[in-house]
């Protein structure tokens, strides 16, 4: 356990600076979004009320009030999210390949450590998970701060305050990132980490057998993916409607656990017996 924690700490510290820069960039960009959108709205208000002499009530009924809804749909808001997602996807591969880089591959030392080799695997997975949840936590805090900032910038009569839950209901991508219900949160991120586990196994296959491993990885990845989404594919693509929604959920859960088990076992085998430096 101690070795595992040490490894997680080591993995995280490796990229901590870059990670905090990423959070900082997100914060700056999203705060810009609040300023940009509220300035745009207020100039609209000024033009309508003072130049075009449109009554306030008419303006509000035609244009509507300012809210966080407009901000989350601004490019300054969504672009850093896309960058963070891309960075996380990239880092999921890089976290393994970095060990083989350079003249004296670091993987040598890692594999020589007097600890179970799977600790390396789990520590990498934990690091990615921590980083993703850290970004989500940062986004939740940022939404609160941005909401507060909007309250300072736009007066109450031209503003509608939305809770984060309401925002998540009105925005498609926020509904995926921070769903309203905790079970949905577990489902979304459970499926995500299931996929990540498959990716890790594919990487280990490639590292073990190189080109052949890449092909093997492709086959493994496809089979695991199809197995994982079998009930969904059966219902949405083939049109099989024989399962009730709650049964579909249980089937997904069981298959998800199977895929996780399969991936972990394969990774365990590869790390202990096949992986080469």
């Amino acid at each position: 356990m101690k070795n595992y924690l040490k490894l997680v700490n080591f993995e995280f510290n490796r990229c901590a600076k870059l990670y905090f820069v990423l959070i900082g960039l997100t914060a700056v960009s999203q705060l810009i979004a609040v300023f940009v959108e509220s300035r745009r709205y207020l100039s609209q208000v000024n033009v309508a009320l003072y130049q075009d002499k449109i009554p306030k009530a008419q303006f509000l009924s035609e244009t509507g009030e300012m809210s966080m809804f407009w901000i989350v749909n601004n490019a300054w808001f969504s672009l850093p999210i896309i960058i963070c997602i891309t960075a996380m996807l990239f880092y999921s591969f890089f976290i393994w390949y970095i060990e083989w880089m350079g003249k004296n591959s670091f993987i040598y030392r890692l594999l020589m450590l007097p600890t179970a080799r799977m600790n390396i695997f789990w520590s990498k997975l934990t690091t990615i998970a921590l980083m993703i949840f850290g970004l989500i936590a940062a986004q939740l805090a940022l939404l609160l701060i941005e909401g507060q900032l909007l309250e300072w910038l736009v007066t109450n009569e031209f503003r509608v305050d939305l809770s984060i839950q309401q925002l998540s209901e009105s925005s498609y991508y926020l509904a995926i990132l921070i769903p309203k219900s905790f079970i949905a949160f577990i489902m979304h991120y459970g499926a995500g980490f299931g996929m990540l586990l498959i990716v890790f196994t594919v990487i280990l296959l490639e590292r073990s057998f190189r080109f052949k491993g890449m092909l093997l990885g492709l086959v493994f990845g496809t089979v695991a993916f199809l197995l994982f989404f079998l009930p969904t594919i059966a219902s949405e693509v083939v049109g099989f409607k024989g399962l009730y929604p709650e049964e579909l959920l249980i089937a997904e859960l069981v298959l998800g656990l199977m895929v996780i088990g399969l991936s972990s076992w394969t990774s365990h085998y590869l790390l202990n017996k096949k992986v080469t430096v």
């Binding site: 901590a16 850290g134 989500i136 936590a137 940062a138």
Partner: peptide, 23 residues
């Protein structure tokens, strides 16, 4: 030496926890 990671775990549990428990 674990301070960064402990801080991160605390922030994660705290904010995601509050988001789902508060309603």
């Amino acid at each position: 030496r674990y301070k960064k990671i402990i801080a991160l775990v605390v922030v994660v549990v705290f904010s995601i926890g509050i988001y789902y428990i508060q309603p």
